[in-house]
Design a protein around this nucleic acid. Structure first.
Length: 419
RNA sequence: GUGGGUGUAGCUCAACUGGUCAGAGUGCCGGGUUGUGGCCCCGGAGGCUGUGGGUUCAAGUCCCAUCACUCACCCCA
């Protein structure tokens, strides 16, 4: 009979990778708490309408990447392709806008997009999502970025590049957009087919086209920074000043445009050289109208999402985050020894000591091999001889020395193990 | 959705132009004098060479199809 395999683009994560993930998550929890964030857990499934309104009807995500299904024959539900919309939905549903003036939330979990899988890109992938709802002071943007760079530093990730840009607001962006369309339409002949399409759908995206020819056309295109209205320009300047205050290295990339429609003003991205084509490990930005568009009050928000798969791939080589081997391995010879080994083993575990034992009745030699392979600190050898006198041999696996101990004197054993 | 690459033991990979080619390393299990790990030595289990067709006297090796995995485009974390 054939085994059933996992669905395309859906991955199992086993140790030692799970250990790395756990380390990433606990570090995030620690850092984010320090910066005043609390965790929120939101459902994996939402009404489809939430994402249509939140992410934007014309985005690729909504157009062709969502896992959408009809529940009970009438309601359209969707596996979340991102977390921001869900977090804001919860924020509104629980009355948080009026309960507090600023809300700082993070959530960690799987997202689902039905794209063709490739390196660093899966149909179920995982994100650490962080959102600040309420005020729109540039200091908020700055400390959010400061926090995430600090987080990445804590993990020991190197060779990362932070890029920031301002996408303007409802006042200044349309003017810029028009200028870009005008400029690109004039230089149409030099654009690739994809960009010609973008010209209609999302002209700003022409900026990050990888085709060389398009790059030449874009080289002299008008830049958004030149079109920023005074409030937006001021916001962006202050953000940079704050980042400089903490010596956060960043590069202003006026050609960086984020994929999602809802971003306004600050947008940022952290990329890496390694990791293949999917080099963005994190992206985020401010959104001035998303909360309102989802039926809430007119408050601003800013957030970012880190791709855990992509981040995990950048973790320092050679470091392991798994549990060390057991403190003790019990090598039991014979039925009676196995019986008392079972008792002792689980007594010690309940005392909080990691202990392993082999019930298979193998030779002492193979049990010792196993103890060694598991990197156990000690081995306890119990055979008929020892059982007769209620004793056991406690062997230090590093030094090779061993002492006779009383088999039922759990305290004495613990004392030696603790050394 | 489009294009490229790859499919041989649990894992990493061999097998020249089709002809003992079904292998190695590693891992797993066991053994190397009585009940003692790491190094070393020996042995064992484990694969209808992804699947289905075709060409041929003969196919892991060539052709077609299919599935899976993978990389890239689109897009994005």
């Amino acid at each position: 009979m054939e085994i059933i395999t996992a669905v395309k683009g859906f991955k199992d994560i086993l140790a030692p990778e799970t250990d790395t993930w756990r380390h990433i998550e606990t570090t995030a929890l620690d850092v984010f708490r320090t910066f005043g964030f609390s965790e929120i857990r939101v459902p994996l499934v939402e009404k489809t309408e939430l994402f249509r309104r939140g992410i934007g009807e014309s985005t690729d995500i909504v157009e062709k990447e969502m896992y959408t299904f009809i529940d009970r024959g009438d309601e359209s539900l969707t596996l979340r392709p991102e977390a921001t919309a869900s977090v804001i939905r919860a924020y509104l549903e629980h009355g948080l806008p009026t309960a507090e003036s600023i809300t700082k939330l993070f959530t960690i979990g799987p997202m689902f997009r039905r794209e063709r899988p490739q390196k660093g890109r899966y149909r179920q992938f995982h994100q650490i999502d962080v959102e600040v709802l309420g005020p729109d002071a540039p200091q908020i943007d700055a400390e959010l970025i400061l926090m995430l760079m600090h987080f990445l530093g804590r993990l020991g990730c190197e060779q990362l590049s932070l890029q920031i840009n301002s996408l303007g607001c409802a006042q200044c962006r349309p003017v810029f957009r028009e200028a870009v369309v005008r400029y690109l339409s004039a230089g149409k002949d030099g654009l690739c087919p994809d960009c010609l399409r973008r010209l209609d759908t999302n002209p700003l995206r022409v900026f990050d086209c990888k085709v060389e020819q398009c790059g030449e056309v874009i080289a002299n295109a008008p830049l958004l920074l030149g079109f920023l209205c005074p409030p937006c320009a001021d916001h962006f300047t202050k953000l940079q000043a704050c980042l400089n205050l903490f010596s956060v290295p960043f590069r202003v990339n006026p050609k960086m445009v984020r994929g999602l429609d809802y971003y306004t003003r600050t947008a940022f991205e952290v990329t890496t050289q390694s990791s293949g084509a999917q080099n963005a490990i994190l992206g985020g930005g401010r959104y001035d109208h998303l909360v309102r568009d989802l039926g809430g009050p007119d408050v601003s928000g800013i957030g970012f999402a880190i791709g855990i798969e992509r981040l995990a791939a950048l973790m320092p080589e050679g470091k392991t985050y798994g549990a060390p081997g057991p403190r003790l391995f019990i090598a039991a010879l014979g039925d009676r020894a196995v019986e008392s080994g079972f008792t002792l083993c689980n007594r010690l575990r309940i005392q909080g000591i990691p202990v392993e034992i082999d019930y298979a009745g193998r030779s002492l030699k193979s049990q010792m091999k196993r103890a060694d392979k598991m990197q156990s600190s000690f081995a306890l050898i119990v055979g008929d001889r020892e059982i007769e006198e209620n004793s056991a041999l406690l062997r230090n696996m590093h030094t090779g020395t061993q002492d006779k101990v009383a088999l039922d004197d759990v305290d004495a054993i613990i004392t030696i193990l603790a050394r």
